[in-house]
Amino acid sequence: MQRALDPALSPAASFGAWQARLQLGFERMDDGGGARTVLRRLGQLGPLTVQKPLYPEGPLRCHAIVLHPPGGIAGGDHLELGITVGEGAEALLTTPGAAKWYASVGPEARQHIQLSVATGGCLEWLPQESIVFDGAQAQSEVEITLGEGARLAYWDIVCLGRPSNALPFTRGAWRQSLRIRGADGRVRFLERGRLLGGDALLSSPMGLAGLPVMGTLILAGQLDRDRLAAVRELPSPAGVQLGWTQLEDLIVLRALASQAEPLRAAFVQAWQALRPECLGRPAMLPRIWAT
């Protein structure tokens, strides 16, 4: 594994704010012992890191946990994460806990994630939820590139405010974008959103309908229509609203809820039901989710 510091960002670039970058490259190795996926490249700067890779599903599927030791993202912070999965390699990444976006007196906090999956590769990006505190000024950008025959499981869960503590999202702004490109460079999915604290859209039936937790689950891979129809009929946890869409070979699940836990449970249920056929593996929960 190659480890290198990235000189593109300087810790002094923004006084009092975290500037961090993490680049991970997973590659498939074929030798006398059979095929395996290894973390071949690791470049990091600042408070973003990754734990030692684990192989609970065997040598071809590598599990890794992305860590942000400060535990929260404040105004002026800028985090960059790049994950590359090489041809035929397989990786699952998650986080140990919720990402907390704190209130800001003015500067915006930003997160930029780039995910790239080469031909025949498989990536599962399954982080725990993001909690956007009242007063936060935050922006999250995600760009995904899929090679020919690449498989993907991606989810994003956002909690506006802290409903479990009766603290709604009354001030600030949450900006979010997601772009997925295919092997030919064509955009297969594009979404941009901007939600303001206290805005009428948060309570409107045309918006979030008073439900402060929202989520998107996207799967790319082969799936029989009958199987998808059966999964759509699975009962959802109480208090969770679900909506399914199929866009060519992308399967999209939308969700709204009053709390993060039942929405995450709904996503786990859908992922468990679809993973064997769509991603070619029986579902195995990351160990960190049980801690």
Results as ranks from 00 to 15, higher is better:
G239H: 11
G58E: 11
R186S: 14
A74G: 12
Q2H: 15
C159G: 04
L202I: 05
T84R: 13
L79E: 09
P47W: 12
V240T: 05
S236G: 12
E27A: 15
Q2R: 15
L123Y: 09
I251S: 04
A136V: 00
P53H: 13
L228H: 14
R225I: 10
G86M: 06
F26G: 05
G198D: 07
Q222M: 12
E261P: 00
A200E: 14
A265Y: 09
L196Y: 11
A283I: 04
P7Q: 13
I157R: 00
A230S: 14
L279E: 07
M1S: 14
P69Y: 13
V158G: 01
Q44S: 13
S10E: 09
M1K: 09
L234Y: 10
I157F: 01
L196H: 13
F26W: 08
A118V: 01
Q44L: 14
P262S: 13
L115A: 11
N165S: 10
G172T: 02
A200V: 08
V187T: 14
I131K: 03
E129N: 12
R186T: 12
A20Q: 05
Q128D: 12
R227F: 06
A220H: 13
S203F: 10
G172S: 04
G32W: 12
I131G: 01
E87M: 06
E261V: 08
D134R: 04
A173L: 10
F267Q: 01
Q222D: 15
I65S: 08
R41G: 07
W125H: 07
T49S: 14
V187Q: 08
D156R: 00
H78C: 14
C122P: 00
R181H: 12
L211Q: 10
V240L: 09
R232T: 07
A8P: 02
A91P: 02
